[in-house]
């Protein structure tokens, strides 16, 4: 009984030591982890999507209730409006896909990023890869984009992913919603 008690105490001490060491390691790596910020990717780095801008500001714009648009922000560089960051939610095959779309003042898509999705592993989740999202780069935000299977021939076409048509179409739909919003509410300086 005595030896058991002794080792129970040792166990408790061990747990405390392990917790403290983990805490210390966490403290040391905290900044680095925060930099990578997962899960809540909502605070995305605007520079990666719109290189000319360096900060985001809320805009005073009404967002239609029934649209896919979730939020619209202005992208600024030293108080000069460079473009917009529009976040949309689009229904994919199995999940809601959140997309951030950056559109420049001149009406060009400068980049998109998939913020969250839960599509089929290995198929639908390819929409989050750079390979797919980069296909939206430099498209003109005038007319809706269409998804095509082969190589793109026109500027308003985006090449899809074989085996993930629904997921890819959902992304295109989301981007189109952002384009429509841009054309109806924002074009020409917005606020």
């Amino acid at each position: 009984m005595k030896i058991e008690l002794k080792w129970t105490l040792i166990l408790v001490v061990l747990i405390v030591i392990c917790s403290i060491i983990t805490g210390v390691v966490y403290g040391a790596l905290e900044d680095k982890i925060a930099e990578n910020n997962f899960e809540t990717k909502d605070n995305i780095d605007i520079t990666s999507l719109l290189p000319e801008a360096d900060s985001l500001k809320d805009l005073d714009i009404d967002i239609p209730e029934d649209s896919k648009i979730r939020s619209v922000k202005g992208a600024y560089s030293n108080d000069e409006l460079k473009g917009y960051l529009i976040k949309v939610d689009s229904e994919g095959a199995y999940s809601t896909i959140s997309i951030a779309i950056a559109i420049t003042n001149e009406g060009k898509i400068s980049g998109i990023e998939i913020l969250s999705q839960n599509e089929t592993e290995g198929l639908g989740d390819k929409i989050a890869d750079d390979e797919f999202t980069s296909r939206f780069k430099d498209k003109t935000a005038k007319t809706p984009l269409t998804l095509v299977n082969d190589e793109t021939s026109a500027n308003d076409e985006v090449q899809g992913i074989s085996g993930a048509t629904i997921s890819a179409q959902a992304v295109v739909d989301g981007v189109n919603a952002a384009i429509e919003f841009f054309n109806t509410h924002l074009e020409g300086g917005g606020n």
């Binding site: 747990i15 917790s19 805490g23």
Partner: peptide
Amino acid sequence: NISYLTTILFSL
């Protein structure tokens, strides 16, 4: 704010 202890405590 000590969620880094999740694995240790959950295993216990």
